[in-house]
Simulated scan of single mutants.
Amino acid sequence: MSFHEIRFPADLSFGAMGGPERRTDIVELTSGFEERATPWAHSRRRFDAGLGLRSLDDLEQLIAFFEARRGQLFGFRWKDWSDYKSCAPSKSPSPNDQVIAKGDGATKSFELIKTYRSGSAEYARPICKPVKGTVLAAVQSVERREGVHFEIDLATGVITFEEAPLQDADVTAGFEFDVPVRFDTDRINVSVSSFKAGQVPDVPIVEVRV
């Protein structure tokens, strides 16, 4: 897939609106009951980048980024300000934030995940675009050092340890992350006069699978 490892300007995404989207197929039975299923294992996020624009300079920055991505052609990184850490928004990531795997004594590479819990239900979200310099890791609560005990692939979110964690050892990680997205349009339509009057362009952004 065509993807540029560059982040959409974070100051422009700060005012954007959006969040996770699910797809649910619902069949109503003759009895009045419903059968519900989903073809998606993972949610997909949508945003409107136009809402983050506050000046003509912002608009120029958006157009430059749009042109460099060739519209919908190339994907890019997006900072979702409502959900970009392995921990609560008010905290800083720690190496024990998320249990990403159990050691088996042989496996060295693991994918970063973030688990969302509510009651007895939970959802494990793959994290494939961690932010450089933010990934922390531990094995059985003992912190490991990047470049010494492990390496992180920033393009895939796969963490590889120098030595395989022992059988049943908790492998944990903390991190900041971006969302892989693309523009969901090949056109930006805006007039300078309307923009000055407070009308911002509609610039849809959609998450992509990588």
Score class of each variant (00 low, 15 high):
residue 13 S to T: 08
residue 13 S to C: 04
residue 13 S to Q: 09
residue 14 F to I: 02
residue 14 F to A: 10
residue 14 F to K: 11
residue 15 G to M: 10
residue 15 G to R: 12
residue 16 A to R: 02
residue 16 A to T: 02
residue 17 M to V: 14
residue 17 M to S: 15
residue 17 M to Y: 08
residue 17 M to W: 06
residue 17 M to E: 13
residue 18 G to W: 03
residue 18 G to H: 03
residue 18 G to N: 02
residue 18 G to D: 00
residue 19 G to H: 15
residue 19 G to C: 06
residue 20 P to I: 10
residue 21 E to K: 11
residue 21 E to A: 11
residue 21 E to S: 13
residue 22 R to S: 14
residue 22 R to T: 08
residue 23 R to A: 04
residue 25 D to C: 03
residue 25 D to E: 08
residue 25 D to W: 10
residue 25 D to N: 07
residue 26 I to Q: 08
residue 26 I to S: 04
residue 26 I to R: 14
residue 26 I to F: 06
residue 27 V to L: 12
residue 27 V to F: 11
residue 27 V to M: 08
residue 27 V to Y: 07
residue 28 E to I: 09
residue 28 E to A: 06
residue 29 L to G: 01
residue 30 T to K: 07
residue 30 T to C: 01
residue 31 S to Q: 07
residue 32 G to D: 08
residue 32 G to A: 03
residue 33 F to W: 15
residue 34 E to L: 13
residue 34 E to Q: 14
residue 35 E to P: 00
residue 35 E to K: 11
residue 35 E to G: 05
residue 36 R to K: 12
residue 36 R to Y: 00
residue 36 R to W: 00
residue 36 R to E: 13
residue 36 R to H: 03
residue 37 A to R: 15
residue 38 T to W: 12
residue 38 T to H: 02
residue 39 P to V: 04
residue 39 P to I: 02
residue 39 P to M: 05
residue 39 P to E: 05
residue 40 W to T: 00
residue 40 W to E: 06
residue 40 W to D: 05
residue 40 W to P: 05
residue 40 W to L: 04
residue 41 A to V: 04
residue 42 H to K: 13
residue 42 H to Q: 13
residue 42 H to G: 02
residue 42 H to V: 05
residue 42 H to D: 12
residue 43 S to W: 07
residue 44 R to I: 15
residue 44 R to L: 13
residue 45 R to D: 10
residue 45 R to N: 14
residue 45 R to A: 11
residue 45 R to F: 03
residue 46 R to E: 07
residue 46 R to D: 03
residue 46 R to H: 02
residue 47 F to C: 06
residue 47 F to M: 04
residue 47 F to E: 09
residue 47 F to V: 03
residue 48 D to K: 10
residue 48 D to F: 11
residue 49 A to E: 01
residue 49 A to W: 10
residue 49 A to D: 08
residue 50 G to R: 04
residue 50 G to T: 01
residue 50 G to C: 07
residue 50 G to E: 08
residue 51 L to Y: 04
residue 51 L to H: 00
residue 51 L to V: 01
residue 51 L to E: 11
residue 52 G to L: 14
residue 52 G to A: 04
residue 52 G to V: 09
residue 52 G to S: 03
residue 53 L to M: 08
residue 53 L to C: 04
residue 53 L to H: 03
residue 54 R to G: 08
residue 54 R to W: 04
residue 54 R to N: 15
residue 55 S to Q: 06
residue 57 D to Q: 14
residue 58 D to M: 01
residue 58 D to E: 00
residue 59 L to C: 01
residue 59 L to V: 14
residue 59 L to P: 02
residue 59 L to G: 05
residue 60 E to Y: 10
residue 61 Q to C: 10
residue 61 Q to K: 14
residue 61 Q to V: 03
residue 61 Q to E: 06
residue 62 L to P: 05
residue 62 L to S: 02
residue 63 I to N: 10
residue 63 I to W: 03
residue 63 I to C: 02
residue 63 I to D: 01
residue 64 A to S: 09
residue 64 A to N: 14
residue 65 F to R: 11
residue 65 F to N: 09
residue 65 F to C: 03
residue 65 F to I: 12
residue 65 F to P: 00
residue 66 F to T: 10
residue 66 F to Y: 13
